Structures are given as structure tokens and as C-alpha cells.
Amino acid sequence: MFITANFDSGNIEVINAESEDAIELQIRRDNQSDFYQWFHFKLYGEIGTEHVMHITNASTSAYPDGWKDYSAVASYDRETWFRVPCEYDGKTFTIRHTLEQESVYFAYFAPYSYERHQDLIHWAQQSSLVEHVLLGQTLDGRDMNLLVIGEPDDSKQKIWVTARQHPGESMAEWFVEGMLGRLLDDADGAARKLLQNNVFYVVPNMNPDGSVRGHLRTNAVGTNLNREWAAPSLEKSPEVYYVLNAMQETGVDLYLDIHGDENLPYNFVAGCEGVPCYDERHERLATQFKETLLAITPEFQVEQGYEVDAKGEANLTVASNAVAERFDCLSFTLEMPFKDNANLPDEDFGWSANRSAQLGADVLSAVYAVANNLRD
């Protein structure tokens, strides 16, 4: 038996692997940070043998409640990720799996690799509707990619979408893949109509360094990018610095920041009710956006989510709040679960890459519903 995490987004440390039924593991912390929860590793073993893996530092992770009612994902081909039996006793998170082939991958959620990220960028670049912009480079020297979709024009509205500020939230880039697939589909009437009067600015991965390093929440130097939007710096948060500068050049009429939530087993949005500029226009647009999404997919709901900030009490270092206030625009953080959608559970796959991509496509209908009224 052998366990390794020496690959893109890999994260695990082996404490004891002398026996298949008592493997002791722990998750490595993000570099220069105390955050950890993401894991991704590969196990070689004997076919037909049950392997019992104990993550011994689960209770001191970033979101210990996230282990409750959660099941890890596994894959033999790195394409299909299925849920495996797991349990959490309040201290240790245990994964059980009987090998069907010689090796298997386990992860906190279906990974979205850096190679797939580059494939996505260059697939989109083939479209005549897309301009691929290099905004700059990260602290590890990786590209910050922006896709400009539609013909820029001062008269058109600017719709910005960013994903994966927190790199372990890989469902966010699956969401973007689904959204781009629909937006670039010539046969989709809603997409074609949207691009007549709007330009989309899409950053599929805000945190490529953290993604490759196997981080949960931070970039190469331990910075939580979603707390940097008041005053980003090239030293700590060049990813936000470059994107915010680009937003300043184009303006923003609608902003969606895509995330995943460790604890809540639901899809939901967090609005910008707490920013000083929030008014009846924002409220009307937010209601229309949510009602449209409720009407077209049972994957979305509004009963469960984060506590709403009182006006003037929003944290303006958070992306959706900072952008809403700076540009006086409709702005949401969209959250998806690591667990499953409790309102529409799938025992075999839980919330998955495919469902994330479908939600990305569906959200374009909600964007379509509000697009003509963003500046009324």
C-alpha cells in the first residue's frame, strides 16, 4: 500500500500506513496560514481490500462542522467522482473504501486541475466572441486570465464573474465551465440576446497558486483574497489588485462571485444589503434575480443562507460588498455545497461537478431576467 499527494492540488500527510484498516492521515495547512480542509490524494493498494483512512486533525480544521453529514469523493479515472462511506465522531474523519482497481484518488470535492483550467481558457479563446486578456502574474508566476466575451462598447453593460478566490472551492470553476458553455453556444437564444447589449468579463480562477498548491482558502503567501478588496497589494494579493484595476477601467453593472460552502448543504446567494449604497433598485433587482432562478431550477433556494447585514454594516473587504459599493451595482456571492443539496439529494454523487456546471448555465437565465433593468 502507498499513498501520495505529489501532484497538482494534492494535499495529505501520512502519519501511519502500516495497516490497511487503520491508516492515519492529516491535512496540510495552507502555506503561511492556519486554514486547512481541502484534501486530495492517491492510494495504491490490493484489489478487494477495504481501506480505512482516518484524518486525525479534522476537528481543528477551518470548518469542523463541515465534516458532519459529509462524504468524500473518489475516482478511478479522474473524470467520474463518486461518494464513498464516511463518518465523523467529532474528532476524526474516517473514509472507508474497498478497492476495485489498483489505485484510486480521494478528494474533498471533484478537483478542477490547472491543466483543465488552461484547456478551458484556450477552448474559449477559439470563439470569435472572446478576447483572452493576460492581467498579470501571481506570486508563483502563474497567469491571471480574463475572458472578455462580447464586443466591448461604452453603451453596453458590463457583467463581471469571478470564481475560486478560495482555491479549495473547485465547484466554482466547474460552475464557470458550465456558464461559458452556454454563453458561447450559438444556438442558445438567451445567450445571443445577452451579448447584444452586455459584455461579460470572466475570471475562471482567481487563485491559481492556491489551487495548484492544494490550499483551501489562501494564495501562495497565506492571503485570503476575499478579504483584500478594500486595499489589495502586489505583495500580498496581486490577484485582486489586477482584477480590481481591470474593473475600474471597464466599470461594473452586475457582479457574481462564485464560491463553495463547507457547512451548508444548499445553493444560495448572499447579497449586498449591508453596503451604504444599497437601495430600492438593488432590492428590486435582487428579488427578480432570485425569483427567476427559483422558477427555473430546484437546485436553488432562498430559505437557507447567511445572516443578512444591516445597512452600513457590510464588510467592505469582501469582494461582493466592495464591488457593489464601489460601482453602485447589483452584486452577489453565490455559494454551492461541498456536501449535497439537501433539497434534492443524490446518494451516489452528492453535489457534483456536473451539477455545478448545470447551475452555471442556469444562472444565465437569471442574468437575462435582470439585464435590461440593471441601471433603471
Score class of each variant (00 low, 15 high):
residue 312 G to T: 02
residue 19 S to W: 07
residue 55 I to H: 05
residue 192 R to Y: 02
residue 321 N to P: 01
residue 350 G to M: 11
residue 356 S to E: 08
residue 246 A to M: 07
residue 226 N to C: 06
residue 7 F to P: 04
residue 67 W to H: 07
residue 334 L to H: 08
residue 260 G to D: 15
residue 290 K to P: 01
residue 161 V to H: 01
residue 295 A to G: 04
residue 34 D to N: 14
residue 161 V to N: 00
residue 85 P to T: 08
residue 262 E to T: 02
residue 24 E to I: 01
residue 46 E to W: 02
residue 255 Y to H: 11
residue 194 L to F: 05
residue 262 E to Q: 06
residue 238 P to G: 05
residue 160 W to C: 02
residue 332 F to D: 10
residue 54 H to R: 03
residue 250 T to W: 07
residue 19 S to L: 08
residue 104 V to M: 06
residue 313 E to Q: 10
residue 316 L to R: 09
residue 335 E to Y: 13
residue 260 G to Q: 15
residue 228 E to I: 00
residue 77 D to P: 04
residue 159 I to T: 01
residue 156 K to S: 10
residue 91 K to T: 00
residue 351 W to T: 03
residue 325 E to G: 01
residue 195 L to Q: 03
residue 268 F to H: 07
residue 45 G to A: 09
residue 33 S to K: 13
residue 201 Y to E: 01
residue 148 V to W: 04
residue 6 N to M: 07
residue 82 F to C: 07
residue 107 A to E: 10
residue 281 R to D: 14
residue 109 F to T: 11
residue 373 N to T: 06
residue 323 V to R: 05
residue 32 Q to L: 11
residue 375 R to G: 05
residue 356 S to M: 12
residue 348 D to Q: 14
residue 269 V to C: 14
residue 122 H to Q: 13
residue 207 N to H: 12
residue 136 G to D: 08
residue 188 D to I: 02
residue 232 P to E: 12
residue 104 V to K: 02
residue 207 N to A: 10
residue 158 K to G: 01
residue 106 F to S: 01
residue 116 R to L: 15
residue 336 M to D: 02
residue 66 G to V: 06
residue 7 F to C: 06
residue 244 L to C: 02
residue 265 P to S: 15
residue 100 E to T: 09
residue 328 D to S: 11
residue 185 D to N: 13
residue 22 A to Q: 10
residue 138 T to M: 15
residue 259 H to A: 05
residue 282 H to L: 07
residue 42 K to D: 03
residue 84 V to W: 03
residue 262 E to H: 05
residue 104 V to W: 05
residue 346 D to H: 11
residue 85 P to Y: 14
residue 46 E to Y: 05
residue 207 N to W: 12
residue 348 D to I: 06
residue 83 R to Y: 06
residue 13 E to K: 09
residue 132 H to T: 09
residue 305 G to T: 10
residue 356 S to R: 06
residue 125 Q to Y: 06
residue 198 N to F: 04
residue 41 F to A: 02
residue 215 H to L: 13
residue 79 E to H: 08
residue 328 D to K: 09
residue 218 T to F: 15
residue 109 F to E: 12
residue 66 G to N: 08
residue 170 S to P: 00
residue 216 L to G: 04
residue 35 F to M: 09
residue 164 R to Y: 03
residue 314 A to L: 08
residue 157 Q to N: 12
residue 215 H to G: 10
residue 304 Q to L: 14
residue 334 L to T: 06
residue 372 N to D: 15
residue 76 Y to L: 09
residue 270 A to F: 08
residue 146 L to F: 03
residue 282 H to W: 11
residue 352 S to V: 09
residue 280 E to P: 00
residue 101 Q to R: 13
residue 160 W to T: 00
residue 135 L to P: 00
residue 180 L to F: 03
